[in-house]
Design a protein around this nucleic acid. Structure first.
Length: 683
RNA sequence: GGGCCCAUAGCUCAGUCGGUCAGAGCGGCCGGCUCAUAACCGGCUGGUCCCUGGUUCGAACCCAGGUGGGCCUACCA
C-alpha cells in the first residue's frame, strides 16, 4: 500500500509580513505537494504560523497590543497572502494552540522521564527596567575588539569589524529596548543533553545506501555530520518570563524556547487537520517505524541545525514519526544581492501581488529551482524575458494557434494524430514521465524544461506542416496537424499543472477534457471527433513597467518602519527663512586625509581635510567622544567652508564639519559616498 | 578563527563514472513564414569552464593552495 505523505514548509514567523523569500519556499513546497497529488499520492501540506518568542513579545508590547492580538493579525495576513500566491496548503494552523501545547508537553515529559532534561544556572544580562533577561541581539554597546571600538553594536557580533563576542564583553552595554545598563544575573535553565541521542542521530543521518532511512542532500548531510562528529552540546530549551510561549509543566516560571515548540506546530496542525477531516492522526505521527507515513520537511539552509538534530531527537524521544526527508533550499537574492530595503529589492509578497499575477513568479521560481541549496537570484530582466519567452511566446502561443485554427476554421472538432507525429508524441509522453520524476526529486527546473521541449517540437511541426497553406480540399489534413498542437498543449499543461494550477484548469475547461490533467491522464490523446471549446488566454506578456513599479513601491513602503514615538526631544524649529540665507553658507565636500586626538583636550579631534582644488584645511571638531580618529580617515564629509577661521588654544580651525547629535557622545558626522568630489559645493 | 556550500557564453543555467563535455534556453545579428498573443521556424554569433599548482595518456570534473560570494558557528548550537 502506498504510504501517506505529509509535507511541511518552515513555519513563517508571526512577526511581520511575508516577503518574496518566504514565497520562494512556499512555492517550492507547493509545487512538490501538488506534483505528488497529481502523481496519485495521498499527500497533504500541513502548515502553521510560528508565534512564540521574545521578538513577538516585544513587538506586541511596542504596539500596545497583546501578543495574541499580534499573532492573530499576522495569521490572517499570512494566510491571505500565501493563498493569493495559490499556495495549496491543506491547513494553516498556529503554534499557539492547545494541540501544539499538548504535544510539546508530551515530548518534554517523555524526555524528562528518560532523564533527558538537565538543569543548571546560566549567567545572563538582565535589564532591570524592562525586567527581563536580554537575548544577545537585545544588548547593544561598544565593540570589545580593541582595534574597532565601534559604538552601538549587537551583543553577539560587531557589524563593523565582523568580530563576535559575548554580550557581557561589550563596552558600555545597554538594553536596546530602553537604554538602561543591564546587570548580570543568574537563572536556572533546562537543557537537553543532545549527546545522548548521538547513536540515534547517526543512524537517522546515515545515507539510504548505508541502511539509513532519511533522504538528505549530500551537502546537508556533510554539514550536519560536522556537528555530530564535533561533539553534540547541551541545548538550552527554557526561557524566563516575560516570554510569549508555553510554560513548562513542573517548572513554574520557565517557558519553552520557541525552537522547542515551533516544529511541534507541524504535529499540532496535523492533529487539527485530522480532527476537522475525520482522519487518523496516529497514522501520521505515531508511526516511528514509518510503516505508513512519509514525512517531508522543506526548509531554508539557515535552520538545518534545528531540523536535522534537535527535531529528530525530540521526535525519537517522544515516540513520534521521524522525518523521511528534509529538503533544503538556498536564499532568494534580488538583482544579485541580498534583499535591500533601500534598493527596493525587499519586496513584500503583497507588493508583488498588487502589480502582477502570482503565476509568473511561481513559474520563474519553479523554473530555477533544483535539488541544491544554492541561492536563487530573482534577476528582474531575466524574470521578464523568461516568463515572456517560455509562457507566452512558446507555450501559450502554441495552444492559441492550434486551438484557434480548429475552432475558427474546422468547427472545433479534433482529428486523429497523424502517423508522422508518432515520434514527437512518444517524446512528449516520455517527457511527461520524466517531468513527474523530476518533480518528485524537487527538480522543478528540469521538469519545466521538459514542457518547453515539447513546445519546441510541436511549434516546429506546425511550421513545417503549414496547415494554413492547405486548401479546403485538405481540411482533414489541417485538422490532423492542428490536433497535434492541441495534444501538445494538453501534455504541456499536465507538466505545468503543479506550478500553474490555474493554467491547467483553463486547459481542462477549454479542451473539455474528460479527465483531470494529472500525470496518469495528461498524455492520453483526445480521440478524433472530440469537440473543444473556445481558446482562453493562458498568459499575456509581462510589461517590464510593472516590475519597475514593484521595485518602486518597495522603496516607498518599506522605509515606513512603523515609526516609533521618539523617546527623546529635539530643538524647536527655527523661524522660516529663504533660500538666500542658505546661499550665504558655502558647504563643500571634503575628504578626511588625517585625523588625530588633540593632546590636552577631551572632546576635540583635529582633522586635515582635502577640499580638492581649494587646497587643504585644518579643522578642529568636538566629536572625540563619538569617533575614534581612524574611523573618519578617508571619509567624505561636509565642510562649512566660508566660516571665519577661528583661533583655538590648539591652533587655527579653518571651518566646521557638519554633524548631528545633541550630546557629545552621540554625534553623527554627515558623510557623503565616494562619488562626491572634494571641493564640490553642497547645495 | 572554524565548518559546509557555490563560481561554466552578455543573462539564467545543464554538464552522471575523468574519455564527442565546450552544451541548452534566453539575448544579439541575418534570413524565412504569416495559422497564432509582433507570436513561430532556420542559420549565425558567443566561453581563460574564477586563479595557481598537482595527479593522469587525458581534467570543467580528482587533489592542494588561493580569490570572490552565501549560510552556519565561536561556553543560551
Amino acid at each position: 500500500m502506498a504510504k501517506q505523505v505529509l509535507v511541511t514548509a518552515a513555519l513563517p514567523y508571526a512577526n511581520g509580513s511575508i516577503h518574496l523569500g518566504h514565497v520562494l519556499e512556499a512555492v517550492q513546497t507547493d509545487v512538490y505537494t501538488r506534483a505528488r497529488k497529481l502523481a496519485g499520492d495521498d499527500c497533504v501540506f500541513i502548515w502553521a504560523a510560528d508565534t512564540h518568542g521574545t521578538p513577538i513579545e516585544l513587538r506586541a508590547r511596542r504596539e500596545g497590543i497583546t501578543p495574541e492580538a499580534l499573532i492573530e493579525r499576522a495569521w490572517h495576513e499570512h494566510r491571505r497572502d500565501y493563498g493569493d500566491f495559490d499556495i495549496g496548503f491543506d491547513i494553516f494552523h498556529t503554534t499557539h494552540s492547545d494541540e501544539t501545547r499538548r504535544h510539546a508537553e508530551a515530548i518534554f515529559a517523555a524526555m524528562e522521564s528518560r532523564g533527558d532534561i538537565l538543569s543548571r544556572p546560566v549567567e545572563q544580562l538582565y535589564c532591570p527596567h524592562d525586567q527581563m533577561f536580554l537575548p544577545d541581539r537585545f544588548v547593544k554597546g561598544v565593540c570589545p575588539n580593541p582595534k574597532c571600538k565601534s559604538p552601538d553594536q549587537y551583543g553577539d557580533s560587531c557589524e563593523v569589524c565582523g568580530s563576535t563576542h559575548a554580550p557581557t564583553e561589550l563596552g558600555d552595554p545597554h538594553c536596546s529596548i530602553c537604554g538602561t545598563a543591564p546587570e548580570l544575573r543568574s537563572s536556572t535553565h533546562l537543557f537537553v543533553p543532545l549527546a545522548r541521542h548521538e547513536a540515534f542521530l547517526r543512524q537517522w543521518l546515515a545515507p539510504l545506501e548505508q541502511g539509513g532511512h532519511t533522504e538528505l542532500q549530500a551537502s546537508v548531510r556533510n554539514y550536519v555530520m560536522e556537528w555530530v562528529d564535533g561533539g553534540l552540546r547541551d541545548w538550552d530549551i527554557s526561557r524566563d518570563p516575560p516570554y510569549f510561549g508555553f510554560e513548562i509543566p513542573g517548572h513554574p516560571g520557565k517557558f519553552f524556547y520557541v525552537w522547542f515548540d515551533a516544529p511541534v506546530g507541524y504535529i499540532g496542525a496535523t492533529e487539527k487537520f485530522c480532527r476537522d477531516r475525520g482522519l487518523d492522526f496516529d497514522a501520521y505521527w505515531r508511526d516511528p517505524e514509518r510503516a505508513n507515513t512519509e514525512l517531508v520537511h522543506v526548509i531554508g539552509k539557515d535552520i538545518v541545525y534545528f531540523h536535522c538534530l534537535f527535531w529528530p531527537a525530540m521526535l525519537h524521544a517522544g515516540g513520534y514519526t521521524t522525518p523521511s526527508r528534509v529538503h533544503v533550499h538556498g536564499w532568494l537574492t534580488v538583482a544579485g544581492e541580498k534583499m535591500s530595503k533601500t534598493r527596493g529589492t525587499f519586496v513584500l509578497a503583497r507588493t508583488y501581488l498588487d502589480h502582477l499575477p502570482a503565476d509568473y513568479l511561481r513559474y520563474y521560481f519553479a523554473s530555477k529551482l533544483g535539488g541544491t541549496q544554492d541561492d536563487l537570484d530573482l534577476n528582474l530582466e531575466d524574470f521578464v524575458s523568461r516568463c515572456n519567452a517560455d509562457l507566452v511566446k512558446k507555450t501559450a502561443n502554441l495552444a492559441s494557434r492550434s486551438c484557434k485554427f480548429i475552432t475558427s476554421r474546422l468547427g472545433g472538432t479534433l482529428g486523429a494524430l497523424g502517423d508522422e507525429t508518432a515520434e514527437i508524441v512518444a517524446a512528449a509522453q516520455r517527457r511527461l514521465e520524466e517531468a513527474r520524476v523530476h518533480y518528485l526529486a524537487f527538480e522543478s527546473g528540469k521538469a519545466l524544461r521538459c514542457a518547453m521541449q515539447i513546445a519546441e517540437d510541436f511549434n516546429l511541426y506546425l511550421t513545417e506542416q503549414a496547415p494554413w497553406k492547405l486548401g479546403p480540399e485538405q481540411a482533414e489534413r489541417a485538422r490532423q496537424v492542428c490536433s497535434a498542437g492541441v495534444y501538445a498543449s494538453q501534455v504541456i499543461a499536465g507538466i505545468l499543472a503543479p506550478v500553474l494550477p490555474r493554467w491547467a484548469e483553463k486547459v481542462e475547461r477549454m479542451l473539455k477534457l474528460p479527465h483531470r490533467l494529472d500525470f496518469a491522464h495528461a498524455g492520453t490523446p483526445l480521440g478524433a471527433g472530440h469537440v473543444i471549446g473556445e481558446y482562453e488566454i493562458l498568459a499575456e506578456p509581462i510589461d517590464p513597467a510593472k516590475v519597475a513599479a514593484i521595485i518602486e513601491a518597495s522603496k516607498e513602503t518599506t522605509p515606513v518602519t512603523i515609526a516609533d514615538t521618539p523617546a527623546y526631544e529635539v530643538e524647536a524649529l527655527q523661524p522660516e527663512t529663504t533660500i538666500d540665507a542658505f546661499a550665504a553658507i558655502d558647504l563643500r565636500v571634503a575628504k578626511v586625509l588625517a585625523c588625530a586626538k588633540v593632546d590636552g583636550a577631551d572632546k576635540l579631534l583635529q582633522l586635515t581635510l582635502d577640499v580638492g582644488p581649494l587646497g587643504q584645511r585644518n579643522v578642529f571638531s568636538g566629536i572625540a567622544k563619538s569617533y575614534a580618529p581612524e574611523q573618519l580617515v578617508g571619509k567624505h564629509v561636509v565642510l562649512f567652508a566660508n566660516l571665519k577661521a577661528r583661533k583655538m588654544r590648539f591652533g587655527l580651525s579653518e571651518g566646521m564639519i557638519l554633524a548631528s547629535g545633541s550630546t557629545d557622545d552621540a554625534v553623527t558626522v554627515l558623510e557623503l559616498d565616494g562619488r562626491s568630489r572634494p571641493g564640490e559645493r553642497v547645495s
